[in-house]
Computed example of a mutant assay.
Amino acid sequence: MKAIWNDTVVAESDATVVVENNHYFPADSLKKEYFEDSIAHTSCPWKGRASYYSLRVDGELNKDAAWFYPETSEAAQNIKGYVAFWKGVKISQ
């Protein structure tokens, strides 16, 4: 699977995990040069507290376009450290 934004592959893996129709990519599949830490956080009742990354490609910023759970609940251990995308990031094979 590939995560693509601004015509650039920002993550690629054959080992994504699908939860609630979102592909979660292993951390080592991210092309780190496109990721910036964000101060944003949200909470999911069953997964835990999410942290975010923004994407920057060719000078364009997609704020908080990726999220992950640094610490997960017991029910979501399979995605601990994995990263999912939204805000126009296309997921394709």
Rank of each mutant, 00 (worst) to 15 (best):
K2G: 03
K2Y: 10
K2Q: 11
A3S: 12
A3K: 08
A3T: 01
W5S: 02
W5P: 02
D7T: 08
D7Y: 14
T8E: 14
T8R: 08
T8D: 03
V10C: 09
A11I: 09
A11K: 03
A11W: 15
E12C: 05
D14W: 06
D14C: 04
D14Y: 05
D14M: 00
A15S: 11
A15W: 09
T16Y: 15
T16L: 06
T16D: 13
V17R: 04
V17H: 08
V18G: 02
V19C: 07
V19A: 11
V19H: 10
E20W: 13
N21M: 13
N21L: 07
H23D: 08
H23K: 08
Y24M: 03
F25P: 00
P26G: 07
P26T: 09
A27T: 04
A27R: 11
A27V: 12
D28V: 03
D28L: 05
S29R: 00
S29G: 01
K31N: 10
K31R: 06
K31V: 14
K31E: 00
K32R: 11
K32A: 02
K32F: 00
K32C: 01
K32M: 11
E33L: 12
Y34W: 13
F35Y: 08
D37Q: 12
S38N: 05
S38E: 13
I39D: 12
I39P: 10
A40C: 11
H41V: 13
H41E: 14
T42Y: 14
S43T: 15
P45G: 15
P45A: 12
W46P: 00
W46D: 01
K47H: 14
R49Y: 09
A50R: 01
A50S: 10
A50N: 07
Y53W: 04
Y53V: 03
Y53R: 00
R56D: 00
V57M: 01
D58Y: 05
D58P: 01
G59T: 02
E60Q: 15
L61K: 09
N62Q: 08
K63G: 04
A65Q: 02
A65Y: 15
A65L: 07
A66R: 00
A66Q: 10
W67H: 03
F68I: 05
P70H: 07
E71H: 06
E71Y: 09
T72I: 06
T72P: 02
S73K: 13
E74G: 04
E74P: 02
I79W: 10
K80R: 07
G81N: 04
G81P: 00
G81K: 07
Y82T: 00
Y82N: 05
V83N: 00
A84G: 03
F85G: 03
F85W: 14
F85C: 02
K87M: 04
K87D: 09
G88A: 12
G88C: 12
V89H: 05
V89N: 02
K90A: 11
I91H: 02
Q93P: 11
